Computed example of a mutant assay.
Amino acid sequence: MTGGPETLRIAAAAYPLDVLDSWEGYVRKLETWVAGAAEAGAQLLVFPEYGSLELATLAGPEVAADLERSLRAVAGLLDKVDALHSALAARFGVHILGASAPVFDPAFGPRPANRARLYAPSGPSGAQDKQIMTCFERSPWEVIGGGPLRLFDTALGRIGVLICYDSEFPLLGRALAEADILLVPSCTDTEHGYWRVRLGTQARALENQCIAVMSSTVGAAPWSPAVDVNVGAGGIFAPPDTGFPANGVLGVGALNAPGWTFADIDLAAIRKVRATGDVRNRAHWPEQAGREGAPEAVCLR
């Protein structure tokens, strides 16, 4: 950890997608969510993957119901979204991982990337793009992988972001092994999907001996062909080792219940478990080298 607080309260969102009546209505919604978490003492707030798609409703039901038009409608509002999140982070003195959104970045060609942005209360922000697309994102949506993985050095420690499906790939998690906290914003439409991401999130906490935070979209959004069904919950997880719960669960919300899930983190416990835990997954990871090839075939017939 690099000079920050020794304790930290984290808030993981289970976030419903609404039909918005105006931009001002969206501002009021975000203000209410951020204020509620801040008043509960949270210093790091985590919103989910594709939570931004509710902004497509501002362009009307026909646009919101069309995959391509909804992507472009949301992307066209992102400058205002960035300004709003930056202002809220500064006003409430919190770090915010905003809901991810489609971004048409000329650097990646004509198709959008799925991007989340981390806002610091002091003003700076940084972007993280999803690395590996789900089947739906590949077709018919044609969302693509964007920029590389990044490690954010913040006043709260080192933070990495693995967007939803990315959490299910251990080499992506290992690339962020220096992170003290991994954030996993998600959007899943079945319990299977929720559990895949949750188990991936918990596995990354085990391997990297870090805190891992999952946020989710929840509830029905019948106006959208992309996020019409949302199944999930907020969750905050640790390695199941010394100084943490035996199951690694620091906090988890009820499935599909909107609201924040909170957990208080002892950052010194992360340092301790990495140095003197019962196991040393993070340190012992390199010992896999040379053992990951094709197994030797042994016939027992």
Rank of each mutant, 00 (worst) to 15 (best):
F47C: 11
N281C: 11
Q43C: 09
Q202E: 06
G219M: 11
A155Y: 08
T217R: 12
N208F: 00
A246T: 08
R301Y: 12
G251N: 05
G4Q: 01
G126C: 14
P258Q: 04
Y119E: 05
A73P: 12
L156F: 10
P225V: 12
S100K: 10
T7R: 09
R117I: 14
Y194E: 04
F262Y: 15
A87N: 09
F244S: 01
Q128R: 14
T154M: 07
P124Q: 01
G234D: 03
V227T: 14
R69N: 04
P48F: 02
S167E: 05
A59C: 15
W23T: 08
A257F: 07
L206H: 00
L183Y: 12
P258W: 02
L171E: 15
T242V: 00
L53D: 02
Y26D: 09
D18V: 11
G232C: 05
G173Y: 09
A275H: 02
V184E: 11
V218G: 04
A238R: 03
A11V: 03
E54H: 06
A35M: 07
P110S: 06
A73V: 13
A37Y: 09
G235T: 06
G173D: 08
A75E: 12
Y165I: 10
Y15R: 03
G36I: 13
C187A: 14
A269N: 02
T261Y: 07
F262R: 09
G109T: 09
A269W: 05
G277T: 06
L300M: 04
A294Q: 13
P110V: 13
A233R: 15
S186W: 00
K130E: 13
L88N: 05
D105V: 07
A177G: 08
R111K: 12
Y50C: 13
A294M: 11
E207K: 01
F244Y: 02
D21I: 04
S216N: 15
V143F: 00
A75N: 13
D79F: 13
F92Q: 08
S52G: 02
Y26V: 10
L78Y: 14
I144K: 04
F136W: 10
R291N: 07
G193I: 09
E24F: 03
I270P: 01
R9K: 13
P148A: 10
R196F: 04
L149A: 06
F108N: 09
L151A: 01
V103Q: 08
P124A: 00
N281Y: 14
C187W: 08
T134P: 14
G51R: 06
G76F: 14
E296R: 13
R274I: 02
F262C: 07
L118A: 00
I144P: 03
N114T: 05
T7H: 02
D189A: 04
D79C: 12
L30G: 00
P222V: 12
S167T: 09
G293F: 14
F108L: 15
A289T: 03
A65N: 12
W33D: 10
Q131G: 05
E168Y: 06
A212F: 13
E191Q: 05
Q288F: 11
G60E: 10
L267I: 11
M214I: 15
P225I: 12
Q209E: 10
P121I: 03
